[in-house]
Amino acid sequence: MNKTLLSLLLCLTFGVTAGPAYDLFGDGVFSLKWGAQPESVMATYPSGKKTKNFGITLIEIKDDRAVFGLNRSKNDTIRFAFDSENRLSGVSIDFSPNDFPMLHQKLITQFGQPQSPPSVMSGTVILVWENDNGVILSLNRQARVTSLSIGFDALQKPKNTKEDLGF
């Protein structure tokens, strides 16, 4: 009985331990906190262009900062994405398609292997790392761009009734 209880406690303890992705990105990215409103992002990045894509608010900036030690072009893009409550919930950083192998290795070194073999759809390669306490990393390679996405799905859920949702 004591061994079973100890095993259960160890499993629960390890299940809530933050991993490397949460340690790095659990509080946000690029000087922004997860859950920030679009106005906060625009205040931090006034050159950003705010758009809507399928009802999702996006703010796009051109930015050439090095990420993971890889140089990026002044035409490369960073996109900030917001959830249905207009809270910052993801960011996507574009790289040259030639950066895919090195970025892939850097992500493996930092965060371990992706959770499953790559998905390949219409020439697009997608690698996804295991959810780390709400932080989800993915690497996407298309013909013209490689993108690293960092998502955060641990924001407080909205308190809606069935009626609020139309049921």
Results as ranks from 00 to 15, higher is better:
residue 78 I to T: 02
residue 135 V to G: 02
residue 159 K to E: 14
residue 70 L to K: 10
residue 89 S to V: 01
residue 148 L to M: 12
residue 39 E to C: 01
residue 95 F to W: 07
residue 36 A to F: 09
residue 164 D to A: 13
residue 59 I to P: 06
residue 101 P to T: 12
residue 153 D to A: 11
residue 43 A to C: 02
residue 132 D to S: 07
residue 138 S to Y: 05
residue 65 R to A: 15
residue 100 F to R: 04
residue 101 P to I: 10
residue 161 T to R: 06
residue 87 R to K: 15
residue 53 N to Y: 13
residue 9 L to Q: 02
residue 42 M to I: 01
residue 72 R to Q: 08
residue 116 S to R: 12
residue 158 P to A: 08
residue 167 F to C: 01
residue 18 A to C: 11
residue 109 T to E: 14
residue 148 L to I: 07
residue 134 G to H: 10
residue 148 L to Q: 06
residue 20 P to N: 15
residue 129 W to E: 04
residue 66 A to E: 13
residue 64 D to M: 00
residue 55 G to I: 11
residue 37 Q to W: 08
residue 20 P to H: 09
residue 51 T to V: 07
residue 1 M to D: 04
residue 113 Q to R: 10
residue 65 R to V: 12
residue 70 L to Q: 08
residue 154 A to M: 03
residue 100 F to K: 04
residue 167 F to A: 13
residue 35 G to F: 10
residue 19 G to W: 05
residue 46 P to S: 03
residue 114 P to G: 05
residue 97 P to W: 03
residue 110 Q to F: 03
residue 87 R to W: 14
residue 133 N to S: 13
residue 71 N to C: 04
residue 144 R to D: 15
residue 72 R to S: 11
residue 112 G to Q: 04
residue 10 L to D: 04
residue 129 W to G: 08
residue 113 Q to F: 07
residue 157 K to G: 05
residue 85 E to G: 11
residue 5 L to E: 03
residue 83 D to P: 02
residue 54 F to V: 03
residue 100 F to T: 06
residue 104 H to K: 14
residue 89 S to D: 15
residue 37 Q to V: 10
residue 28 G to K: 10
residue 121 M to L: 14
residue 141 R to S: 14
residue 141 R to C: 10
residue 16 V to G: 02
residue 94 D to K: 04
residue 11 C to Y: 03
residue 22 Y to T: 08
residue 110 Q to E: 13
residue 57 T to P: 03
residue 20 P to L: 06
residue 74 K to C: 02
residue 136 I to A: 04
residue 144 R to Q: 13
residue 136 I to Q: 12
residue 164 D to Q: 06
residue 11 C to D: 06
residue 2 N to P: 00
residue 22 Y to R: 13
residue 130 E to M: 06
residue 155 L to F: 06
residue 165 L to N: 13
residue 49 K to H: 03
residue 135 V to Y: 03
residue 77 T to F: 01
residue 84 S to Y: 12
residue 15 G to W: 09
residue 67 V to W: 11
residue 164 D to N: 14
residue 86 N to L: 15
residue 148 L to Y: 09
residue 114 P to Q: 07
residue 100 F to L: 09
residue 75 N to K: 14
residue 115 Q to E: 14
residue 46 P to G: 02
residue 160 N to R: 15
residue 5 L to S: 00
residue 58 L to R: 13
residue 57 T to H: 10
residue 109 T to F: 12
residue 61 I to V: 07
residue 128 V to I: 14
residue 69 G to C: 05
residue 104 H to L: 09
residue 21 A to T: 08
residue 91 V to A: 06
residue 29 V to H: 05
residue 149 S to Q: 13
residue 111 F to R: 05
residue 48 G to M: 00
residue 51 T to A: 12
residue 164 D to M: 08
residue 50 K to T: 09
residue 163 E to L: 10
residue 158 P to N: 09
residue 38 P to Q: 09
residue 44 T to C: 08
residue 59 I to N: 01
residue 102 M to G: 03
